[in-house]
């Protein structure tokens, strides 16, 4: 029993690391830019299928493929922000219609994938991913460990950028005080455009991690909407460290629930946590 719990906890931490990679894009968009991008999981699914295609057709490594596709996602994200800015942000109309807009984008991503790939599960068949790594009673496959490590690297890189570069600080400042930013000769719209591009680019990598962990089908993205919002809100808006910690906590909670009560209950963990978080402490664990 103790071994089982130890295994479940470690598996949960690894899963949480992956969740963190999925969430970081939303954490940037929602936490720093005030853009409620509910379409983020849709971009992750696009990334997952792109990585699957590159691996299947061109024999690339999925994570390498996800990294190579990231610039394309960046451009798409920047373009999407332009549309969003011109249509909603500039009009000061970001509530109802902005939400409906991203809802529509999410929906489109799913339908496009359905049309291209059908509703079947697509998975990778790479033997090296099944290598087991054993430490004491705990034993985990490489396909879980690798995404965890990539996610930590992604976080470290982003955290460094936000703390130590002028541009990173400009992103953090843009929703708090755009006027001050303008006085420092940085165009807020331009800053947000690039930042949103970065946020979407992370979805390409997250998608590659998703396909590394398990087979995917187009409608899976929906399960992640609640999960990633739960993580962002629980971790606190505008805190990457909070996002990482909340993701790990949620991963462990889901994994333990799946082990103790069965996997069909684990979606309720994320959404239940989100409901409670929203009502009790909307500013999150490490909110600004």
């Amino acid at each position: 029993m103790l071994d089982l719990l130890a295994n479940a906890t470690v598996a949960g931490l690894l899963l949480g690391g992956f969740y963190a990679a999925v969430t970081v894009g939303l954490s940037i968009a929602f936490g720093y830019l005030d853009i409620v991008n509910i379409a983020h999981p849709g971009f992750m699914m696009l990334g997952a299928f792109a990585a699957w295609f590159a691996t299947d057709a061109w024999q690339l490594d999925p994570i390498l493929a996800g990294t190579l596709f990231a610039p394309i996602f960046f451009v798409a994200g920047a373009a999407l922000y332009r549309v969003y800015h011109v249509s909603f942000e500039r009009r000061g109309d970001i509530g109802l219609r902005g939400l409906a807009f991203f809802f529509g984008v999410l929906f489109l991503a799913e339908v496009v994938l359905l049309l291209l790939f059908g509703a079947d599960y697509r998975g990778l068949n790479l033997p090296y991913l099944e290598t087991m790594i054993t430490a004491g009673p705990v034993s985990v496959p490489l396909r879980m460990v690798l995404p965890f490590l990539v996610s930590l690297a992604l976080f470290a890189a982003l955290q460094w950028m936000f703390d130590h570069t002028f541009f990173g600080r400009a992103i953090k400042a843009v929703s708090q005080d755009p006027v001050a930013l303008r006085l420092m000769a940085a165009d807020p719209v331009r800053v947000k455009e690039v930042a949103f591009g970065i946020a979407i680019a992370t979805a390409s990598i997250a998608g590659a991690l998703l396909i590394t962990i398990a087979p995917v089908e187009p409608s899976m993205g929906r399960d992640y909407i609640g999960r990633i919002f739960a993580i962002v809100v629980l971790g606190g808006l505008g805190s990457l460290t909070g996002t990482l910690l909340a993701a790990l906590a949620l991963g462990v909670a889901e994994s333990l629930t799946a082990t103790l009560y069965g996997p069909s209950w684990s979606p309720a963990v994320a959404f239940g946590a989100l409901l409670i978080a929203l009502v009790v402490r909307p500013t999150g664990l490490l909110g600004r």
Binding site: I38, I225, F229, V233, F271, G272, L278, P282
Partner: peptide, 28 residues
């Protein structure tokens, strides 16, 4: 009652969460 405490986007996400919790209960 949720809408008394939370607004805008948070409310929208909370309703989504509510639907998933209900579905999980029905599934089980």
């Amino acid at each position: 009652y949720l809408a008394l405490r939370i607004k805008d986007v948070y409310f929208a996400i909370a309703t989504l969460a509510l639907a998933v919790v209900v579905q999980t209960i029905v599934d089980n």
